[in-house]
Amino acid sequence: MRFFQALILIPIAILALVISFAEAYDPSPLQDFCVAIDDLNGVFVNGRFCKDPMRVNAEDFFFSGLNVPGNTSNQVGSNVTTVNVDQIPGLNTMGISLVRIDYAPHGQNPPHTHPRGSEILVLIKGTLYVGFVSSNQDNNRLFAKVLHPGDVFVFPIGMIHFQVNIGKVPAVAFAGLSSQNAGVITIANAVFGSNPPIYPEVLARAFQLDENIVKELQAKFGP
């Protein structure tokens, strides 16, 4: 009887272990700080190597420049200034990062997703139309709002989301993310600009488009 009880408990224990790992997107700190450092003699792992704590200084936790507007003279009319573990090594293992987003009039941060973090955005200046789309399981529902200065909106991890400046003046927002390096996948770039390209006939059928239109989009978004 005890043998069969043990057999039942083993998969339960494994499931609990998997769930605990799945919920930990970033490594948890086991000390006061783990300032990231490149180690050419080491092996790349999920996270970074730690700087000798005795060599850590205030500069490892500092970044300057978020008061400077980003250049929005591009095809989408927006600029994202990222402050993650690459800019502040002291963010390593802390599970947070920050961005400043500048939008030209009618500019947008096109549909994209962050594979490793949720996002909370606060609008400082201008008027934005923002939203995210839920998963297939939830029937791809759109959750969208028009934001004014001081408004806050949350984008859950992994959900495709966007922001559009619907005003006639530049807009500025700041956003925090629940990862030291949340990553970003811009949908159009990933689908139509992959390297090497996805077979046009595959995308034509998936998006119900003419194959020539797909090739045109691949020419625009391609490397």
Rank of each mutant, 00 (worst) to 15 (best):
I14G: 00
F4P: 01
D102S: 03
L30R: 15
A144T: 10
P110V: 14
Q218V: 13
P27G: 08
G47S: 01
G90A: 09
V83W: 05
N212A: 07
G47L: 03
I157M: 10
I96D: 03
P170A: 05
S20D: 10
G70I: 03
L66Q: 09
F207Q: 08
R100K: 02
V146A: 02
V214C: 04
A104K: 14
F3H: 12
T82R: 07
G131W: 12
A188P: 02
M94W: 05
G222C: 09
A6T: 12
K220V: 10
F3R: 10
K125D: 12
N139P: 00
A175K: 03
F49E: 06
A175T: 11
A190D: 06
S134G: 08
L7P: 01
L40S: 12
A144V: 07
N189D: 13
V191N: 01
D60Q: 11
P223F: 13
P105C: 14
N195C: 06
V68F: 06
Q31I: 05
A182H: 01
V184L: 05
E119I: 08
V68M: 03
E119Y: 04
V68P: 00
N140C: 01
G131R: 08
L203E: 04
P115Y: 13
V202G: 03
P170N: 12
P197Y: 08
A190P: 06
S135F: 05
T113Q: 05
G158K: 08
Q75W: 04
L15A: 10
R116E: 14
L40R: 15
V133C: 10
E23V: 15
A219L: 09
N92M: 06
S118N: 07
P196Y: 14
T113V: 15
T93E: 01
G158F: 08
L203R: 05
P27L: 09
A206P: 01
T82C: 01
V83Q: 11
V146F: 00
D151I: 10
G222H: 09
N136I: 08
V214S: 04
S97K: 07
H112W: 13
G150I: 12
F207S: 10
I88N: 06
E216R: 12
P89Y: 04
Q87Y: 04
H114D: 06
M159T: 12
V172N: 05
D86N: 13
G107D: 06
Q5R: 10
Y199L: 12
L142Q: 07
V133R: 07
S194Y: 11
A6H: 08
M159V: 13
D26F: 10
N79K: 14
A58C: 04
T81F: 05
